[in-house]
Design a protein around this nucleic acid. Structure first.
Lengths: 170, 170
DNA sequence: AGGTGATGTGAATCCCGGTTCACTTCTTGG
DNA sequence: CCAAGAAGTGAACCGGGATTCACATCACCT
């Protein structure tokens, strides 16, 4: 809190005129920042295209934004935080999942995707995206990364699409 | 530490004869327990069967063990912990990923799976499994679960298999 | 039995950073 | 211009729990 106050150019006590506790301050910050990310992804999920195309766009948006602001993405996805902030993170992930669930639902209705639980699939997609990104995003990540950025993005998108699409030979 | 000591029937100071700090004690416990889980999954990954069958077996093992011991699984996968334990958790996940990467590599070699980065795919699989399980495992999970256990398992396994397999119409 | 090192004990210490609060400074309506 | 409330200040406080340590006990050897 001392650092935050100094950074904001105010005294520590001043923070408590605006936020009841450290946890709530941090949770609020998380909420705002996460909201922007969600908006960007939600925008990518819209449009008149097929579900597959939109899913591809969502995954690309998610990955590219994360790689463009790795520190932020790491904070949003993986960094250890107060329980209150962790709760906010859960909401954040669920929101992503909700967007993806709609998308998967559309795909099933269009018969682009085989029957499946949209919620479960959406959750799995969020898990895939988050986990594959944790490596590259981690502050002490080994550079150079194992895969060049383009290849990484393309392969991860492929994994997402295949996960919700029909297989060729079962 | 007081609780741990009481539970073990020793004085608090005694713990420090065996472990240098709380974090290292917890990390050691995590290591041991995680080791057992890894062993179980590694066993499921072996055998003469096709990569797809083995992958299915791994996913089922992972899911079933998690659901059978939800509190433990939650602690291993998601519960907020000391940074030192978090580091151990990272190792744990990487170990799973390594097992799966071998498996995916086998599948590619057998031409059962299309070309892909085994490491990336394996990481994605770990992410899918962990994320889909966090919901059901979470201590304050809404019961009854959205999906019956059998259906949940089957659908999650299907997601895993599809993610690494070829799509029917690209 | 006596000595020596390992192990056990648990109350006291210590540290740390979030939080408080008595006081000052600013803002605004009359 | 003057209350009177709002907002700002920052040094001091405080709680909690990990850690310590002076002492007791034990195990094992000669």
């Amino acid at each position: 809190m001392q650092i935050v106050a100094a950074d904001a150019g105010v005294a520590t006590g001043t923070i408590y005129r605006h936020f009841p506790s450290k946890a709530e301050l941090f949770a609020t910050v998380f909420q705002r920042v996460a909201g922007q990310e969600v908006d960007a992804v939600a925008a990518a999920a819209g449009g008149p295209d097929s579900a597959a195309i939109r899913l591809q766009r969502v995954a690309e948006t998610f990955i590219q934004r994360a790689l463009a602001a790795p520190r932020l993405a790491y904070a949003l996805l993986a960094e250890p935080v107060d329980p209150l902030v962790e709760a906010e993170r859960l909401v954040f992930r669920r929101t992503y999942a909700a967007i993806l669930a709609d998308l998967v639902g559309d795909g099933i209705r269009q018969a682009a995707f085989p029957p499946q639980s949209p919620d479960l699939s959406a959750t799995a997609l969020v898990g895939m995206l988050a986990e594959t990104l944790v490596g590259p995003l981690s502050p002490q990540a080994a550079d150079p990364p194992a895969l060049p950025v383009n290849e990484f993005t393309q392969q991860t998108v492929a994994l997402c699409l295949r996960a919700v699409s029909a297989r060729s030979h079962p």
